[in-house]
Amino acid sequence: MRPFGAITSGEFADTCTRCGDCAAVCPQAIITADDEGFPIVDLTRRECTFCGECATACEAGAIVPATGWEWRAKVGETCLSLQAVACRTCEDHCDERAIRFQLQTGGRSQPIIDIESCTGCGACSASCPSGAISFEMLQGAEQSDFNASNNQPASIKNEHMRMSGPRDA
């Protein structure tokens, strides 16, 4: 999953210089690097506020100002509510109120995500105690190098790209 405002994946690889400026300015510290040094977003750490600082810092033009993101949250089988454990942490952290729970038999609740309201910010994922929330591209949107099935690229470097000084993780 490339940062908010990243150009199409084919052009991105040719345009991005892997300088790390986007990661250095990210106030949420969610931009890390993949195995090749290209920036990716890790929404298991914190949410994206769509501030656009990464686009402002990208002199190469690989990340540009944007108005929408094509990623949406998806709840997996490890969701505690699906296991009859009372948890609605994702709903509590969703400012857009895109997550609701429908009561089921056996003390379970089915999380339902309103795709129209979901912004893909990741607040739900960052707060989920069981890591049940992943992200998938909206149908018809361009696919990237991100493996949405497990919410992680093949390997994430948990350190930040070229940043001076310590950074809260």
Rank of each mutant, 00 (worst) to 15 (best):
G165E: 07
G10P: 06
E59K: 15
G76S: 15
G106P: 05
T56R: 11
G76N: 15
E91A: 14
A66I: 00
G106C: 06
I30S: 01
M161A: 11
E36G: 11
P65R: 04
S109E: 15
C94F: 06
R167M: 09
L82V: 00
R100L: 10
Q152T: 11
A154D: 14
A57C: 05
G37I: 05
G68T: 15
P3E: 07
E70W: 08
G61Q: 11
M1H: 09
A13T: 12
G165Y: 06
P27R: 07
N158Y: 13
M1I: 11
N151R: 12
C128W: 08
T49K: 13
Q104F: 12
F101C: 02
F146A: 05
D42E: 13
E59R: 15
S155T: 12
K157F: 10
S9A: 12
V64G: 03
S127E: 04
S134V: 15
C121H: 01
R100Y: 05
G131R: 09
I63K: 01
E136I: 06
D35L: 14
R45I: 14
D114M: 09
G107Y: 02
L103K: 14
R18L: 00
G76R: 15
R45N: 10
E47W: 01
G76M: 15
G5F: 03
I7K: 01
A86S: 13
C48I: 02
E47D: 13
C22F: 04
T56L: 06
D145Y: 08
A13G: 07
W71G: 11
V41S: 08
T89V: 07
E59Q: 15
H160G: 07
E36I: 00
G20D: 07
D42H: 09
V25Q: 06
M1T: 08
E136M: 09
N147P: 03
S164Y: 10
A123K: 00
G107Q: 01
N150G: 04
R2W: 10
G107F: 02
G20N: 10
S130H: 03
D35A: 14
P3L: 03
S125F: 10
